[in-house]
Design a protein around this nucleic acid. Structure first.
Lengths: 97, 97
DNA sequence: ACAATTAGTCAGAAAAACATGACTATCAAA
DNA sequence: TTTGATAGTCATGTTTTTCTGACTAATTGT
């Protein structure tokens, strides 16, 4: 009962705003992503920024962090259910561009 | 032939990112918007930021600036054709939120 | 044993975005 | 004629975002 000129789209837009988030999100659509791998794939990016982006995407619950206790012990980030809901919008954006 | 990891959605996302752009865009969907009117409608906003947002939305060709030479001589900003293409995506975003 | 890879953190600097208050200039209404 | 509305600009300052380089710490490959 407090916001009157609420722009519902705004929140989602903000979640995907930031210099590296769209690219991270797009890569995550095609399967689990990993920290160092992202650093290599996204040219021009840097540790700090990717780390922060991943943390925020996780907080916003678009990505889920998973520690893989298997063979070469590592961490991967997967699109959450909420994240998957954004895929169609993302695709639509891609088709428009 | 130069970008390999291009994220097509990125550009559009960037166009709608910024503190006031989503709200301005949403208001523009419902008809022409005007500078002072936006300042009144969008609480917390300020001249400078709204002016910059309008200028950028215009540069990005999502809005078109029109000088109304009629009766009380003023300026209005309308959604361009390109801007209208974004409406469905925007709505989808709203429905998800 | 030594080097590389993984996945980060931390402090500090630089750059970009946003806000404030003062100011301009035209037009219309009281 | 003075006030209020229109639509801004400009200089400055604050805040937020992003980048850089050094560092940690566990694991894996040579």
């Amino acid at each position: 009962m407090e916001s009157e000129n609420d722009c519902k789209a705004e929140g989602l837009l903000k979640m995907l705003s930031g210099k590296w988030k769209p690219q991270i999100f797009r890569l995550a659509v095609n399967g689990p992503v990993r920290f160092n791998s992202l650093l290599r794939q996204i040219k021009g990016s840097n540790k700090q920024s990717v780390a922060v982006a991943l943390k925020e995407l996780e907080e916003q619950q678009l990505l889920e962090k998973k520690v893989i206790k298997q063979k070469p012990l590592h961490i991967e980030y997967n699109l959450s259910e909420k994240g998957k809901l954004l895929i169609p919008v993302f695709r639509q954006l891609e088709n428009l561009a």
